[in-house]
Design a protein around this nucleic acid. Sequence first.
DNA 1: AGACGTACCTGACCGC
DNA 2: TGCGGTCAGGTACGTC
Length: 291
Amino acid sequence: MPELPEVETVRTGLRPVMEGHAFTHVETRRGNLRIPFPNDFAGRLTGRTVKRLWRRAKYLMADLDDGETFVIHLGMSGRIAVYADGKSRRLGRFVYPAASPGAGMGEHDHVVLETDAPARIVFTDHRRFGLMTLVATADIERHRLFKGIGVEPLSDEFDADFLTRTLKSKKTPIKSALLDQRVVAGLGNIYVCEALFRSGISPKRLARSVSPPRIAALVKEIKAVLKDAIAAGGSSLRDHRRTDGEMGYFQKTFYVYDRAGEPCRTKGCKGKIRRVVQAGRSTFYCATCQK
DNA sequence: AGACGTACCTGACCGC
DNA sequence: TGCGGTCAGGTACGTC
């Protein structure tokens, strides 16, 4: 899934058909995703206009005109596709696939939303680890989904001082610490592996044993890899797609993720990319470049 | 308190 | 062709 850059890519695709637009039709095809849909989910969305579409960690947040926020998480396998007829002047230069009668009728198309853009937005999630809910906008910070969430990695608050302070007491491997959404919000397995490679830090090293200068390099590489991925339209593994159905292509530039056994791409390095398991998740790294 | 394992769910892929 | 085992981008909860 979708980590921060992929969620950001989805947001970019949804903005022109959601921001400033009202939901004209909402339907759910089952009672729950990872969690149940809230009471009268479709009724509470229908007729509401989206004031702002933003992102917190890996959550998409659509602030509505009645004081509620529509919250979406893509989980591991969630996808969002946008279908529009392209005739709307409001869509401007954004081009989406033409609406087709079958759009939204697949086995795992669990939610279909239509807006007056006009557009049909289809949420597909075969593993159903994603979620959709409604939260009072004023209560978001206190809501159980968000109250423990850490800083945004692309914000100024996320800097070398912050990360040094935060990791100082952590005995867990640096890889696990960076995946912890309470430390920094939005990183997932791919970008943690990539950022550790770029900064030459072994994923096995204990978080508190990384020196401040190397933490500074890590912060810089985390921001860089996220920005690069967003600029490329998100990565794409297996079933992730952008809202226009195109594959993101950032995965072509992975240095280590899913490259076990392949040669390290560092010039002059003779090492091979290794795969190990940490906290139940695959970690990919070069033991020669990362210490 | 913090770290770890496990559960949630379906599909793709690999070896036999 | 079919079957079983393993793996997958995330999060939450129980247990030590």
